[in-house]
Design a protein around this nucleic acid. Structure first.
Lengths: 328, 328
DNA sequence: CTGAAAGCGCTTACAG
DNA sequence: CTGAAAGCGCTTACAG
C-alpha cells in the first residue's frame, strides 16, 4: 500500500496525499476528508513494510494481579523475538479509539485478554494483524485462535479434593455466566456425580469474582440452617470474601469450613490460612499466546502449529482445606 | 543522521551500510562489525524523524502489585498524548540488550522505575530521549528529573500515629539502605524526638521488604524480653511477614502488637486485620512522571514545568493499630 | 487549492 | 565482497 495508490483511488496527486498524511496546510477541507477516508479504509500505515516490531496487549481491566502475570509472560517471549510489548486498556469511555490506534501502528501481533467483538476482530484481520484471545470468556468462532486454561478439570480437581477429604455439602460460588465459570461448574457436577453425591441447587450461588460478592454470598450461605462444609470460590479474591464471612460467623477455616480458590495469585500463599486454590498458569498461558501470535505473524510459520490450546490447571494444596467437622 | 553519513564515516558505500542495517548477506565480517559500531555510536535509528510515538517503561522487576499501579498511571496519561505504552524488564541476565533496543526504537520518552546507571542514562540523553526516574532509590545528579513520594513525612506520620495511640516501644523494619527507606527512618526518628521518646537502636532492624524477611525480623523482635508494642514495616508485603510472626508468637494484632505497612496496595484492605499503612500513590506518581517526561519531549514545553517532585503520602488508618496493651 | 518537477534517503539488481 | 546505477516512495519548493 503506497500513497500513490491512495492518490489514484482518491483521484488526486501524490503530493496532496502526502500533505494530508502529515497534516500540512494547502489542502481543501473536502479533499482532506475524502483522502482521510481512503487512508483509513485502505489501512495505510506510515510504518515500513513489516510494521513495527511490537506485540500489543489489549486489556479490559489493567488493575489487579492478573494483568502483571500476563505482561510478564508476554515479555519473556517478546524478548526472544526482539519485540516491544505495548500495553493498552480498552475499557469503556476513554478506551474508545484505542483499537484504531493499535491497528494504525501495525503491530506484529495482538493479544486480547478476554473479550473482543466481531467488529474489533475484523478491524485487525482486515489489516492482516494476527491476534490471539487469552483466557476467552465466551464461545469464539472456530477459526479464532485462543489460549485458555483447563477449567473443567480445575473444577473437577477442586471438588474431588474436597470429596476425598470427606465433604459432601460443597457450595460453589459461580461467577458471571462466562465460559471458564461454566466449565468449572460442569467439572464440579461431574466430580460430584462420580462420587455419587447428589447435587443441591441451593449450593450453587451466583457471585461476581470480587471480594465483596464473595463475602455477601458466603455470609448468606454460612448463615443457613444446613450450611455447607466447604466452599469453592471462583477467584482467590472472592475466596478472601469467604474468609471474612467465615470469620464474622465465628467459623474457623479449615476446621469448620474448607475454602478453595481459583487463580493462585501470589497473595494466596500468604493469607491466613494459606489458601488451597486451583492454579491457573496465567503467565504461561500469556507466553503461549504470544508465541502463537508471533508465529502467525511470521511469513513462514515455524511449524504448522496448534493455534488454540488450553493449558493445564493444577491444584495447589495449602491450609484452607481439611476434613469436615465431625458432626456433619 | 542518514546512512550516507554513516557510509562516509565508515569509508564504505551507501548500499553496504544498507545491507548491514537489514542483515542482508554480501558483507564481509570485518566491514559488518565496523559499520555496526558506527551505527551504534552515531545512534542511527530507522524510525522517521520524530521517532515512534511511545513512552517506554523500564522495570527491574515486573512481578508484584507495584508494577500494575505504575502501568495504569502511565496508561492514562499516554492515552491523552496518543502514545503507546511499552513495557520492558531490564533485570539481569536476559535483560542485557534491552536498553539498547529501547534507544534504537526512539521512544518519545522513557520512565525508569528505580535504578538507572550513569551509562544507561547517557545512552538515552545521548540520543535526545528524555527520561524521568520514578521512585528513585538512590541520590541522583541534580539535573536528572524524578518523581518520588514524601517518604520522610510518611515515616513521621506513621510514627506520630502510633505515638498518639500511646506506644513508646516502636520497632522499625528498615529495608535496604536506599533513599526512600533512609527518608522514612529519618521521619521516624524525627517523630520520636518530637514526642520526647528516646530512640532504641535495638528497635531498628534491617530487613528486605519481602514477606520472608519481615517474618524473620519480627519473629526475633517479638521473642525478645522487652518486645515492642508496635512495628512499622517497610512494605505491605513485609507487614504480612510480621502478621505471621505475631500469629505464631500467639500475639493478637492489634491488641498485643500494632502493625503499620508502607505502600497501601489493594491487598492491604482485605487482609485480616485490614492493615493500617502509609499510602504511596504509585499510580499518581507514575502519571506525573509520564506527564513530565512527555512534556520534556515536546518541542516547546507546555510550561517551564517542574521536573522533579515528591508526591504526598497519606496514612490510611485501618484495624491493625490500637493502643498498646495496658501492662506496657 | 492543486500538482508537475526536483530532490532525498533508502533499497535492489547487477557488474566488477 | 563491493559499489555505481537505477528505481521506489515520499516530501519539498514552486508554478499555475
Amino acid at each position: 500500500m503506497t500513497i500513490a495508490e491512495i492518490a489514484a483511488s482518491a483521484g488526486v496527486s501524490v503530493p496532496t496525499v502526502s500533505k494530508v498524511l502529515n497534516g500540512r496546510p494547502g489542502v481543501s477541507e473536502a479533499t482532506r476528508v475524502r483522502v482521510e477516508a481512503l487512508i483509513e479504509r485502505l489501512g495505510y500505515a506510515k510504518a515500513p513494510v513489516k510494521g513495527s516490531d511490537a506485540v500489543e496487549l489489549l486489556f479490559h481491566d489493567l488493575s489487579g494481579a492478573r494483568a502483571v502475570e500476563v505482561i510478564r509472560g508476554v515479555e519473556q517471549v517478546a524478548r526472544r523475538y526482539r519485540c516491544a510489548v505495548v500495553v493498552n486498556e480498552i475499557s469503556g469511555g476513554l478506551g474508545d479509539g484505542v483499537l484504531e490506534d493499535v491497528a494504525w501502528r501495525r503491530p506484529r501481533a495482538v493479544l486480547a485478554v478476554a473479550r473482543l467483538s466481531g467488529t474489533q476482530r475484523e478491524l485487525l484481520t482486515g489489516r492482516g494483524i494476527p491476534f490471539v484471545v487469552l483466557d476467552p470468556v465466551e464461545e469464539l468462532p472456530q477459526q479464532v485462535p485462543f489460549v485458555g486454561a483447563t477449567d473443567f478439570r480445575g473444577g473437577q480437581t477442586a471438588t474431588a479434593h474436597l470429596v476425598g477429604l470427606g465433604h459432601r455439602r460443597i457450595a460453589v460460588l459461580a461467577g458471571p455466566d462466562e465460559l471458564p465459570v461454566r466449565a468449572r461448574l460442569a467439572g464440579f457436577h461431574s466430580a460430584l456425580h462420580a462420587a455419587g453425591i447428589p447435587a443441591d441447587p441451593a449450593l450453587v450461588v451466583p457471585a461476581a469474582p470480587t471480594r465483596e460478592d464473595g463475602y455477601a454470598a458466603a455470609a448468606a450461605l454460612l448463615a443457613g440452617p444446613d450450611r455447607p462444609t466447604a466452599v469453592i470460590a471462583s477467584s482467590d479474591l472472592q475466596a478472601m470474601g469467604v474468609y471474612r464471612a467465615a470469620r464474622e460467623a465465628g467459623l474457623s477455616i479449615p476446621r469448620d469450613v474448607s475454602v478453595v480458590g481459583f487463580d493462585d495469585l501470589p497473595a494466596a500463599a500468604w493469607v491466613d490460612p494459606p489458601l488451597t486454590t486451583v492454579h491457573r498458569p496465567l503467565a504461561d498461558m500469556a507466553a503461549t499466546a504470544a508465541e502463537i501470535a508471533l508465529n502467525l505473524s511470521a511469513d513462514t510459520p515455524a511449524a504448522p502449529a496448534q493455534t488454540s490450546v488450553e493449558i493445564a490447571t493444577t491444584l495447589t494444596t495449602r491450609e484452607s482445606t481439611a476434613p469436615p467437622p465431625a458432626d456433619h
